[in-house]
């Protein structure tokens, strides 16, 4: 395995972990927005308590991902940031609003009265970021040609992302994050009624996940539809994803909540892996491949060592964080 491929693998892991953790935090914002019924406030409180100690750390996966992209695949980073400036900027606005609104509403001793009515902003920003993240990931599948005159990406700054397929992927991402959050919240809740609330939400969002996946497939350009099934890994991956999804729904239905959580995490992981397999060997199709945009080996090799050493410190710390705050409910 070449160093560039190993780095790409690390980035895939970071994307999966970001989806499983940070993605679920965004999904929590969706349920904050859609909180309702007799236990509206209890729902919001549970979301708040579940996210609070871990969301800052969850967010760093995205930073790690973007740093690895610009360090190891600088040409791809420059091309993506240029052509997708608009959705990326919107995603940033969402990230800023979400992060600040969350902490503002949490720490305000007046609980968002007066000048600080930020709770709604947190929820709204929780919609913007997953959708734009999905748009960006969907857009990477096609349209990134290198302009032979400049050697830079050929772009009108719009056409790469303003198309049905990226938006369908955006919708899918939002549904997926919401689904994941609902499944987690089922396990976090102590009150059986609250569990039932989120179980119903998880099942409903599972249906939306399926529908938006179908929509994305239907509006996908032929090239992407081809990529989605081209690899010899594609069929077993799709089958496994489908199995995990069905298992998650069955487990939710039969109230095996822990199992449902495991299945949902497997499902989401497989979806991200499936996306990566379809994307391979391109970072941005068709002009920017992993090997073609990789930084010199003199950069990649020391970085891999640094990543390994960093991981030795990071993962035990991260495990400690989750043990401290999630142990009671997981036990």
């Amino acid at each position: 395995m070449t160093p560039d491929l190993m780095i790409a693998g690390v980035m895939l892991v970071a994307l999966i972990l970001y989806t499983l953790t940070g993605g679920a935090d965004f999904g929590g914002g969706v349920w904050e927005l859609l909180a309702g019924g007799p236990r509206k406030d209890a729902q919001r409180r549970l979301i708040d308590v579940s996210i609070q100690p871990i969301w800052e750390a969850n967010h760093v996966w995205l930073i790690l991902l973007i740093v690895l992209l610009f360090v190891c695949f600088p040409a791809a980073f420059a091309a993506v940031c240029t052509a997708l400036h608009v959705p990326l900027a919107l995603m940033l606005v969402g990230i800023v609003l979400r992060g600040s609104a969350f902490v503002f509403s949490h720490y305000d001793p007046l609980h968002g009265r007066g000048a600080l009515r930020w709770g709604g902003v947190f929820a709204l920003a929780s919609l913007v970021t997953p959708v734009t993240l999905g748009i960006v990931l969907g857009a990477l599948g096609s349209g990134f040609e290198v302009d032979p005159r400049t050697g830079f990406v050929a772009t009108d700054f719009v056409s790469q992302w303003l198309a049905p397929y990226p938006f369908a992927v955006g919708l899918f991402t939002l549904a997926l994050f919401a689904f994941l959050a609902a499944v987690y919240l089922v396990c976090e809740a102590d009150d059986p009624l609250l569990r039932a609330d989120f179980r119903a939400r998880a099942l409903a969002s599972a249906a939306v996940v399926g529908a938006s996946a179908l929509l994305a497939f239907l509006v996908a350009p032929p090239a992407i539809r081809h990529d989605l099934s081209a690899s010899s890994w594609a069929t077993p991956l799709h089958l496994a994803t489908g199995l995990a999804a069905v298992a998650a729904i069955v487990a939710l239905w039969t109230r095996r909540d822990r199992l449902a959580r495991a299945c949902a995490m497997a499902q989401v992981t497989l979806i991200v892996v499936g996306w990566a397999v379809a994307q391979y060997p391109y970072l941005a199709h068709p002009g920017y491949t992993i090997a073609g945009t990789a930084a010199p080996v003199s950069v990649l090799t020391p970085l891999l060592v640094a990543l390994a050493l960093g991981g030795l410190v990071l993962f035990p710390s991260l495990a400690y964080l989750f043990v401290v705050f999630k142990r009671r409910r997981a036990a």
Partner: peptide, 22 residues
């Protein structure tokens, strides 16, 4: 690529900061 090392290490340091601040 040239200044990737400090940026990557900063990523880890920031990660640890967020974890232990939590």
């Amino acid at each position: 690529p040239i200044i990737g090392m400090p940026f990557s290490l900063e990523g880890f340091a920031f990660f640890l900061e967020a974890i232990f601040l939590g």
